[in-house]
Amino acid sequence: MTILTERPSPQPKPEFEPENKTRAELITFGVVVGAPIVALIAAIPLVWGWGLGWTDIAIAAVFYVVSGLGVTVGFHRYFTHGSFKTNRALKIVLGIAGSLSLEMSVLDWVATHRKHHKFSDKEGDPHSPWRFGTGFKALSKGLLYAHMGWLFEAERTNRAKYAPDLVKDPDIMKLHKWFPALAITSLLLPGVLGGLLTWSWQGILTALFWGTIIRIGLLHHVTWSINSICHVFGEEAFEVRDKSRNVWWLAIPSFGESWHNLHHSDPTCARHGALKGQIDLSAGVIRWFEKAGWAYDVRWPTPERLAAKRLG
């Protein structure tokens, strides 16, 4: 007598296969995170020994502003959230400028940030400081993880799932492919400019130190502070489903990104610092683009939209 048993139905294959970062990428993250810390330790004797010239300050400032706004205006408000529309030329310029930050390619940056918004401060968030719990020890560990520990996770955020629009954009895919070349340019160009402007080896070395190592390190830690500090400390002015807060003292170096509470309350809004006294340099740049005719359909906040989610 044969006993018929029901064969288990085959499990469907996941729509999006997980993809891991390569060993080379993880090592690169380690160098990018660690080198600025070592450089800061060496900064005082370097300044005492060689001095800090106006050329170094100018090069570092220009690269910080260009790459920083490339992230805040380009990667974040334009590519990730669609806070405004623009022409093809400015789209490519913003993609290049953001890539000079060495934070990620535009494709990976956008995919990761969209995943963050989908699961903000819940399971699945790539960099929530609350992932280990609410106690002092757990939160301290979470702050470090949210600040930079998450970069060393092996699994990569799925690009096709979280950024399908960018995957279909030929310009974005070219920028993604060119990211290593743009990163090398960002690393070496300050030194080249320092040498040309001073015509000296010292000018090359000091420009590399301040315009590359310190500039990249400062920009990274300011950006990572939005993930860590702005999800634990600060003030809440708008209703949100997570722990996003406003941190006023980060507003200038982050170009307005630290007005994080309104951003999570209204992610597509082009201005994050919408209340009186909140300086938002990124919004000012978008306004300038709009007046020049380069940006349109800008999602500016309205009194009605602000009042709808305002606390108190």
Rank of each mutant, 00 (worst) to 15 (best):
I37S: 03
Y296F: 07
P18A: 13
D280W: 10
G211Q: 01
G149H: 01
H272R: 07
A39G: 08
I172R: 00
I59W: 04
F238G: 04
A24G: 05
K13W: 15
A58G: 13
P14K: 08
S228T: 06
S67G: 15
A160T: 11
F179L: 08
F152E: 12
Y145V: 00
G70D: 08
K13D: 15
K291P: 14
G68Q: 13
R156S: 14
G51W: 02
W48Q: 15
L94I: 09
V47L: 13
S258Q: 13
D108T: 05
D242N: 14
M148T: 06
L196E: 14
N261R: 14
A295S: 06
H76C: 06
L187K: 05
K243I: 11
T55V: 12
W50T: 15
K243G: 12
V66R: 15
I204T: 12
S265N: 10
D165I: 03
K13H: 15
G142K: 00
S225P: 11
P36D: 02
A61Q: 15
N87Y: 05
W54L: 14
E304A: 06
D56I: 04
E257D: 10
L94Q: 02
I184V: 15
L197H: 08
T223E: 12
L40D: 08
Y296N: 09
F238I: 10
A283V: 07
T302E: 05
V167E: 10
A274W: 05
L100Q: 10
Y145C: 01
K161Y: 10
V285L: 09
G98R: 00
K177N: 14
K115E: 12
D121N: 05
A183G: 04
F132S: 04
G142Y: 00
P126I: 03
G293E: 12
A97T: 10
L151D: 00
V65F: 14
L188N: 01
P126L: 04
L40T: 13
A58N: 11
G133H: 00
D266R: 04
P12K: 06
F152P: 11
T86P: 02
P14E: 13
D266T: 08
Y64T: 10
F289L: 13
L193G: 07
N246F: 08
S67M: 13
K276F: 14
L46H: 07
Y78N: 02
F63S: 14
R305T: 04
S258W: 06
G142T: 00
G211P: 01
D242W: 07
A292L: 15
V192I: 15
I96T: 10
V232C: 10
R287Y: 10
A42G: 03
